[in-house]
């Protein structure tokens, strides 16, 4: 499980962070969704229920590739994609947390907390996007980045623990 969790970890960075060079997104989302699809394929062998997320990831990868290439935004599709993305990341973190718990890693609880916080934060961002201005917008964006980095960190701990376990074997 080290590799799929590692893929999920890097996928989060690609998807949730938005680093732009002018209008060009240098961390395109589709790459992250591709990583997640790969992770799900591997995880599906052990956890069959997780396969349900795969079509979502594929769909998100295709649409975000189209968005990235043609710089188009269709508002209704954006809404649906935002919901699907919300569900996918929640589902993935749930699965990783469940696995971590099964393995007895300490990170399971933190991952669940971060997962919940991320879901609430994302909904808050969708709701307040039009209202946040100036310093508040910056603070919100900063908080979001910190949250993502924390999730990345927790996933890194799980990956590390998996590595140790593999070495012990």
């Amino acid at each position: 499980m080290r590799e799929p969790i590692s893929c999920i970890r890097w996928g989060i960075l690609w998807i949730l962070l938005d680093v732009r060079l002018g209008r060009f997104d240098i961390l395109p989302d589709f790459a992250g969704y591709y990583l997640w699809t790969e992770a799900l394929t591997e995880m599906g062998q052990e956890f069959p229920d997780v396969r349900r997320l795969r079509p979502f990831c594929r769909g998100l990868a295709v649409f975000s590739l189209i968005e990235w290439l043609f710089e188009i935004k269709i508002s209704l599709l954006s809404l649906v994609l935002a919901l699907v993305s919300l569900y996918v990341i929640y589902g993935l973190l749930t699965q990783v947390a469940a696995y971590a718990e099964k393995q007895g890693y300490e990170e399971a609880r933190s991952l669940r907390q971060m997962r919940n916080l991320l879901a609430v934060y994302q909904v808050g961002m969708v709701m307040c996007y039009d209202w946040l201005k100036g310093g508040w917008a910056t603070a919100a964006a900063l908080g979001y980045v910190i949250l993502q980095l924390r999730i990345f960190l927790h996933l890194s701990y799980v990956v590390e623990a998996e590595e140790k376990k593999e070495q012990e074997k």
Partner: peptide, 11 residues
């Protein structure tokens, strides 16, 4: 899934 269900329904 209660939280995510609630989030999706809210949005």
């Amino acid at each position: 899934n209660a939280l995510i269900s609630l989030c999706i329904a809210l949005v």
